[in-house]
Structures are given as structure tokens and as C-alpha cells.
Simulated assay, not measured.
Amino acid sequence: MNMNDLERFCSLFDQQVRHTWATVSRLAPEKWANVSVETEATHLGARVKRITVEALVKHLCLAERAWLQTLPQALAGKELSPPQGMDALDNVTGSLEILSFYRDSHAAGIEMARSYGRDVLEREITALGRRFTIQGFLWAVYGHHCYHFGHIDLLMRQQNVTPPDFIELPETGEVIA
């Protein structure tokens, strides 16, 4: 199979997000809000002060949604604006409701990414003072997801729940990437 870089990103990113959903679905809903270890260093930026599976899943959902929706409007050579709408899930609790929102926003985001043209993918932007093409930044989005998947894995293990191995992606019959 001959995939271009965008197709490869969409396939692998979609598989990793679906793997994350399956992984967190193994965790009892009441354990989504547990904080296993809390120190001054356990926070994610300015907004997430308590790292929980719920906070991480919300963060992934909203950051990915914001990035995939706004990348086509990013201006060449300009700093990418921080994700907006990060409060969309502030009043949503419960694993089923959060995952339902995530599934819907992910489907829309992947569809949007698949529509990016070469002019969008090759555009150079700056994010956090680093230069990327938008195609390159998509791989940073994938890396961001995997980074936080590792946090989720650790939080689950601290609650005596064994997650699946990292690369146990849902697709077993087709080439993923």
C-alpha cells in the first residue's frame, strides 16, 4: 500500500485515539477522577491542576479538536494561537458522556484533516517558538496524544488496572501506516 504522509497520519492517529478510548473504557467510571499521586509538579500547564484520567481525556479531546479545526486558518510564518474552547467539557462529567463527545469531535477532526490540501500542509507556522509545516505539526499532535497516553497508562497502573500494551491498536487486518 502506498500512503502519502497525510493518509499515514490520519490512519495512525485515528488508531491511537481509538486505542486510547478502548484503554480508558477498562477503567471503572469512579476511578476516572482518582488522583494517585499529587505534588506541586503534577499539573498540565495553567488549566489542569489535578492530573486524572478524566482531565487527561478531556485535555486530549479538546486540544486535538481545536488544533484540527484551526490549522487550515493558521497564517504562514505566524505563531499558532493557543487552542480555544478548552472549557467546552468543564461541566461534563462521567466517562460515557466524555467519550461520546470525544468520538464526535474526533470524527469531525479526522474528516477535516483529510480535506487539508497541499497548500495547507506545506504552510510554515510557528508553535511555541518552533517552526513547523502544518503536516509536521500534525505529527506533533500525534506525539502529544501518545505523551498523554503514557500518563493515562501510569494512572491506571497506580489504580491496579493493567492497560493493554502501547501498540495494540484496533486494526489487525489492514496496513495502518
Rank of each mutant, 00 (worst) to 15 (best):
L121N: 06
I134P: 05
H43C: 01
W139C: 01
R157W: 00
R65P: 04
H106M: 14
V57F: 06
V53F: 00
A127L: 02
R47V: 11
L56N: 07
Y147C: 10
F149W: 15
L44G: 05
T70V: 10
F101A: 07
T162Q: 14
G117D: 08
E64M: 14
V141I: 15
L99D: 13
G143T: 13
P164V: 06
V57N: 04
M156G: 07
A41K: 13
N91T: 14
S81T: 12
L154R: 03
T93N: 10
V161R: 01
A55G: 09
I167S: 13
R65D: 13
V92Q: 02
M156F: 00
S115I: 04
G129P: 05
D119P: 03
L155D: 12
R130V: 13
A66L: 05
T93C: 08
R130C: 07
R114G: 13
C146R: 05
E38K: 12
A33N: 09
Q84V: 15
V92A: 07
A74C: 03
Y116S: 08
A88P: 03
S100I: 06
C146L: 14
Q73V: 02
Y116W: 07
Y142K: 05
L56Y: 00
Y116T: 06
Q69D: 11
K49S: 03
V53P: 02
L68D: 06
E97N: 13
L169F: 12
R50F: 11
R118W: 04
V141W: 10
E168D: 11
I134V: 14
P83K: 11
T70N: 15
Q84E: 15
W67T: 01
Q84Y: 10
S100Q: 15
L56P: 01
A76Y: 03
L62G: 09
Y102W: 15
P163N: 14
T70F: 13
G109C: 08
Q135G: 06
E97P: 06
G45E: 03
R123V: 01
L169P: 09
R103V: 07
G136I: 05
D165C: 03
N34S: 12
S81A: 15
G150T: 03
F132D: 00
P170G: 06
S95E: 07
F166I: 15
A41H: 10
A127K: 02
L99V: 09
F137K: 07
A74D: 04
T70E: 15
L121V: 07
T42N: 08
T39Q: 12
S36R: 10
T126I: 13
